[in-house]
Design a binder for these strands. Sequence first.
DNA 1: TGGAGTTATAATGTCGACACTATAATGGAA
DNA 2: TTCCATTATAGTGTCGACATTATAACTCCA
Lengths: 230, 230
Amino acid sequence: MAFSSACKLQDPVTIADKLFLDLRRAILVGEIPAGKKISEPELAASYGVSRGSLREAIGKLENCNLVTRKPNIGARIIGFSTPQLIEIYQIREAMEGMAARLAAENMSEEEIDRLNAILERHKLEIEQHQGYSQEDVDLDFHFSIIQGSKNIRLIRMLCQDLYDLVRFYRFRLKSGFHRSEQAFHEHNLVVSAIERRDGEMAETLMRHHIRASRDYARKMLEATVAQNEG
Amino acid sequence: MAFSSACKLQDPVTIADKLFLDLRRAILVGEIPAGKKISEPELAASYGVSRGSLREAIGKLENCNLVTRKPNIGARIIGFSTPQLIEIYQIREAMEGMAARLAAENMSEEEIDRLNAILERHKLEIEQHQGYSQEDVDLDFHFSIIQGSKNIRLIRMLCQDLYDLVRFYRFRLKSGFHRSEQAFHEHNLVVSAIERRDGEMAETLMRHHIRASRDYARKMLEATVAQNEG
DNA sequence: TGGAGTTATAATGTCGACACTATAATGGAA
DNA sequence: TTCCATTATAGTGTCGACATTATAACTCCA
């Protein structure tokens, strides 16, 4: 599942960790609406835990960039904003570009095989027009390459911190928002560069891919706004 | 001062925040040695605060990547490792490269003036052989460009999270470790590209600069190890 | 003597209560 | 009626105590 793939906790042993995972899922899925203020007593009661544990969980959510806190005022779920989405794409372009470069240098043949398997799955799902699961396959693709970089800190910064935000936005934009065929093609190019161990080219292609996604998202958002205004 | 420049808290209003800043400084400066395990009761007593506040501060330190925690075992200050330092350089290359590109697009003329003032200061300190303060000027240079990107999340990820690590390592490598003249020259090249609003070139030059720093650090570390072994 | 099992100790996780702060509600004066 | 001051309320920050877990010390047996 797409949630567990980037999870930092194998099995949450402590209450605060369980709570953290619960809340994270609830936020990403939209059970807790974006921008909502968190009432510590209320939430603690509804989950049947103490405020202390809840506060610890909120602290972790803050690290994932899913909530913001102000002293003496409280925490609230992050909101949706187009400029922020663009910012995230810019960061992804830089970091995942580097990840692709390193992956070309460091991935094992076995890992590249698994990467090709993901492409195969993507192809199948496009042929069957399974729009809903194509987003999972897209995440799997990007995660595999990030993992392949073997740069542990880079992996953590992307998979743990930034990709929670990616999921947050993706979930709220999922309606007919994919450019699967084009993305699939770009994915293939990246993998072929990795297979040739051409790090420079892998980085260039990955950056192009993410930039294209960004431009597409921007266009769609502008169209949506225009539609709402008209 | 170099510490406050990237500080996320204007004035720490809460005990936990004050404690966080205190501990962060102590770790970066080496007052608390690298790799040391944290005893919550002990630290709380020595700072005269409750364990709750201390735990909150430790949580924040964990976000800054300065301590690591394991459930039911505890927290310890991060250790020093050459591979990790290389990882950080790789990430900086990607992210600061992007920052330089964006800075070329978004920096105001006034900000560029301030950038040139930093270069001027750097030049002066080289002429006066003030090795100790050249590291501060170097940090100021990089921070200014990162700020100039105007990408708020990028700024936060670099200045708040990654650069604490940079300081951590820098403080432990500071003995005769600078390549100031070369770095100064590379800084000038980056700024000239920004002045010309050439984002592509600014990114290339910044990446080159950071890669050169990385190679230099690696060489110095290998020499040090060889020296210790011989 | 060495090692496994057991006990003892210290540390972390969790909780409920109190203090202080911010916000909402209320009341009074212009 | 409107605005400001005051009070009331809810919420966050902080603390000390208890429960649970990991580690160290110890004992007993082979």
